[in-house]
Design a protein around this nucleic acid. Structure first.
Lengths: 169, 169
DNA sequence: GAATGATTGACAGCATACTTACAAAGTGGA
DNA sequence: TCCACTTTGTAAGTATGCTGTCAATCATTC
């Protein structure tokens, strides 16, 4: 006989890819924050620091493209990194609009120190899966993110797209 | 010779599971919003509506457990759904603290109407993958989210955990 | 070299997503 | 019954993540 008290289930939500992606992101952030608590750094702030270390003297707009991060939001992220004195911002000589970003000494040190915690967090996220499954999941996700790049509002423009930014082209 | 101008790459970010999860969530939301633009409904609001339809008369705290959604955040989500007159909130007779949630007629209608768009969005998210790979990814993600449930700040407490909420226990 | 259009950073506004704190209301035990 | 504890909703505060708009600046084109 039909169960009248619960004719509809939550399956439409629980089995939807979108729900699983949101949930996984939620879990990933929680694990990152737990492992990196001592450093008071968020996942996004970490990504920004790595990008600035990789591209010293990058400006905010290009930085947003390198970490696929909205330009508006990035403003406040940069402000927080400035307030914590992990980066510094200097006006560019050639273009009065842009402000160039560099790691401070303490920013570079923090980035070095936090790496073990970050790595632990990344390992923990996939820990419950069998090693072979971890590889499979990462491969499929990498592929999917890449193929869906243009679908996002802030497509990733990796290093290739920054050639004109490099003076030593 | 070593490339002194870019000694460090972004690989530490791009290949990290956490980055891929964030990116995929970003893409999933963008696709959802694009497909559902006509209905002015966010992914979270959609999930909340489905949960309220599945559990008529649920309260905010239990709702947050059913969709693994932070209790504080849920407050503002409910307010927006109330403002759009998609749900209504009535004080419970037995417990003066709780407020029971129900879909309005227009909320139920919206939920019916939006389903095709939601389904299109879910399909689009995985579209770039081969059909077999879609199944594999979904299976692994489901498994991982389930096994990592307790790692998140707001673990999912699905229907099973709501037995005491049902009067017809 | 002046008009035009694009780029850059800043800001306002909306919507998650989390933390802590708190008051009101309920529950159980001494 | 009174007290401790919990539960519920709410609020304040921080941090993404997006939409717009805007002024200043630069690059281009005529």
């Amino acid at each position: 006989m039909p169960n009248k008290s619960a004719p509809i289930t939550m399956d439409a939500v629980y089995t939807a890819p979108g729900y699983l992606f949101r949930r996984m992101q939620q879990i990933a952030v929680a694990i990152f924050m737990e492992e990196c608590r001592a450093y008071d750094l968020t996942p996004v702030q970490y990504a920004a620091l790595v990008a600035i270390r990789t591209h010293p003297g990058i400006d905010a707009t290009r930085l947003s493209a390198v970490i696929a991060f909205d330009r508006s939001t990035l403003g406040s992220v940069i402000e927080r990194l400035l307030a914590k004195q992990l980066i510094e911002r200097k006006p560019a000589a050639e273009d009065k609009r842009v402000k160039l970003l560099h790691l401070t000494r303490s920013g570079a040190a923090l980035l070095r120190d936090i790496m073990p915690s970050v790595n632990r967090a990344q390992v923990r996220m996939l820990q419950p899966l069998k090693p072979a499954d971890r590889k499979t999941l990462l491969a499929l996700l990498t592929q999917l993110v890449d193929l869906n790049n243009e679908a996002s509002r802030v497509p990733l423009r990796a290093e290739d797209a920054l050639e004109h930014f490099k003076k030593s082209g």
